[in-house]
């Protein structure tokens, strides 16, 4: 709390700007006003959707809209969403309960599996690209990295028909495979930079002692590159969870549709009660939100491609 108290703690700032205290106060006040503007822009939309999800219908549809916090906050919409199904304007009921349940399961299964696969394969390949020289290495690296900046439609179109022939449309396995492949380049790139930061002398010593490559990878590289593996896992998890295009194309039924697609089903088919939609949106963005709050350091390093360490 003391971090934010401007007035009432003059002692705090005295160390930095003792001689010209009024000017330092002015500077701080200016910075806090700017911070408030920045945070309003960044958080107001999220705050408002959360408020919508815990407001009663009457308050939410009041006009002019003036409820910036509900007078009787309620979690009924969340309960409804997962149990009875949302109530529509026309008084009917939708099977939201089933959709939300399966959507959450599918999102969790696909994003966790893809993140695990990318972390394992990415660590191995990152080590190989960082430490071992072999023929066509540059070429292989180039063709893998090419996936990152280029639009993937050239592959998606034919991939759709290939996956249909293989019976992988509308399956979790199909989505996991596609997510893993699309996220691998970033995983490999990040892991190769992390491995390169590990002093090679440690491995040299182990090699002299007769260790083989597998032992090096599992006993030396993996423990030392653990922060990198965590970053790769979290970034992949976030990207797969947030992805919409792949499940939009490659899923057909609630059997395999993740939350991002389920959300669009609500709005498309019915005129849905807004507060329930808000609750569904909050549920969908809750995992990314928590990751952003608690694991930001890893995510930022991963998502900025190591441009910022």
């Amino acid at each position: 709390m003391s971090d934010f108290s401007l007035a009432g703690s003059p002692a705090r700032s005295s160390s930095t700007a003792a001689p010209k205290r009024p000017r330092e106060y002015f500077r701080l006040a200016f910075l806090y006003v700017c911070s408030a503007i920045l945070l309003f822009w960044a958080l107001a939309p999220i705050y408002w959707v959360f408020v919508s999800s815990i407001s009663t219908r009457t308050e939410l549809y009041a006009r002019p809209y003036k409820i910036w916090f509900p007078s009787q906050p309620t979690f009924d919409h969340y309960v409804e969403l997962f149990t009875s199904g949302a109530q529509f304007r026309d008084g009917g009921y939708s099977p939201t309960a089933g959709l939300m349940g399966s959507g959450m399961r599918n999102s969790l299964v696909t994003s966790l599996s893809a993140a695990a696969i990318v972390t394992i394969l990415g660590t191995g390949a990152g080590y190989v690209f960082a430490r071992i020289t072999f023929r066509f290495k540059g070429l292989a690296f180039f063709f893998i990295m090419l996936l990152m900046p280029l639009p993937i439609w050239v592959s998606l179109i034919a991939l759709f028909f290939l996956m249909s022939q293989a019976g992988l449309i509308d399956t979790l396995f199909g989505q996991i495979m596609i997510f893993s492949t699309l996220l691998l380049p970033l995983g490999i790139w990040l892991m190769s930079t992390f491995v390169r930061d590990i002093p090679a002398e440690i491995e040299d010593a182990a090699l002299v002692d007769g260790a083989n490559r597998w032992q090096l990878l599992f006993r030396i590289i993996m423990p030392l590159a653990r922060p990198g593996m965590v970053a790769v896992f979290l970034v992949s998890l976030l990207s797969a969870w947030n992805n919409f295009l792949i499940p939009l194309i490659f899923t057909r039924t609630p059997n395999s549709q993740p939350l991002t697609v389920v959300l669009t089903l609500f709005i498309g088919q019915y005129e849905v009660a807004w507060e329930s939609m808000a609750a569904a949106a909050v549920v969908t963005m809750l995992p990314p939100f928590l990751l952003a709050l608690f694991f930001q350091r890893y995510l930022v390093r991963g998502l900025t491609m190591g441009a910022v360490k």
Binding site: L38, L39, A42, L43, P45, I46, L238, W241, N242, F244, T260, L263, T264, A281, T284, M285, P288, F289, L291, A292, L293, Q296, L299, V300, L303
Partner: peptide, 14 residues
């Protein structure tokens, strides 16, 4: 800084 980064993590669909 932590709070300003949050919109970046929101699923684009949401």
């Amino acid at each position: 800084r932590t709070l300003a980064i949050i919109p970046w993590m929101v699923p684009p669909v949401v």
